[in-house]
Amino acid sequence: MDRYIEDKDSKIKVDTKIEGKVGEIDFNTLKSGGLIKQRQKDMFTVRLRCPGGRVPLSKLEKVVQVAKKYAGDYIHLSFRQSLELPYVNYKNFKAIYEELSERDQKVASCGARVRVPTACSGCEYNPNGLMDTQKMAALVDEKFFGADMPHKFKISFSGCPIDCARTNENDLGFQGAVNPEWEEETCVGCRICSKACREGAIVSDVETGKPIYDPEKCLYCGDCIRACPTNSWGEKTKGWVARVGGRHGRHPISGHIIAEFIQDEDVPKFIETVIKWYGEHGKPYGRTRIGALLQIPKEWDSFIATLREKLQDKIKSNPKPPTKNEIHFE
């Protein structure tokens, strides 16, 4: 809680249900309903639930109407793709909830729980996109949003290795990837794939022009597949690369790859396993992000063992625990 806020009281009377409660509610409970106390007395920011940062126009119209009526004269775009209405008096919470629900626009959640997933535009119309991030963001929001956790828990989806959704900075991140496969018979040795590859994972044979592929350097972006004029490069496997334990903030942590080429249907199972483990193992440590927890060797071992039990060989053979990102003066 911001120590400069004017209210000395940490409780407020509301007449709309927040976490099933009505009446005298404290600020922390309000946060679970996406209501964030501002510095100004009685003023709150209302954060809306916009999975994947996609807001249908019919909802947006309603949000603008509500904002004009009850909020400040602008909308703030949060860093995790939500619309936020600042300068809302708590006395209007009920009216705002009701009016937004007319177009099924929900309010988000803050605090120690599973947050709204973020996502890029994915394969729907982005030429680099390999996987359907928007579909997954909607599904994950539906299934896991708001679940109580030892600390906040953020999930993101990137459609390709450019990773705009920064999967390494989220508690759990899924990034689209494709494992390429080359067929010699149809290859004419044109060398375009070696030009298209930005990672140096493909070099062309000096004599024949045919590709020499180094999987160690490959980022699984699929540029070779998209560029190949004869379709000699194709998809062997396509799926999600999962990273776990990242965070940003005052002490950022980078999450590393824990699984490769998992399928859409594996994702809910994966999330379920991770948050169940985190719920149980995080509790004794208090308010601790999963990334910090996984830096403790015995917890890391327990985590990997639990995932292996549920997802078997989909878990990488030598995964690396999350590592600290040093951004301050040493």
């Binding site: 030429p127 044109c190 060398r191 375009i192 030009k195 298209a196 930005r198 540029d223 998209r226 560029a227 190949c228 004029p229």
Partner: peptide, 23 residues
């Protein structure tokens, strides 16, 4: 030119539905 043009143009040509028959 080699470099960025060779990295991008052939791929875009393919995406538009044309075929590169010789390089």
């Amino acid at each position: 030119d080699d470099g960025e043009p060779m990295q991008n143009v052939p791929r875009s040509i393919k995406e538009e539905g044309h075929k590169i028959i010789k390089v």
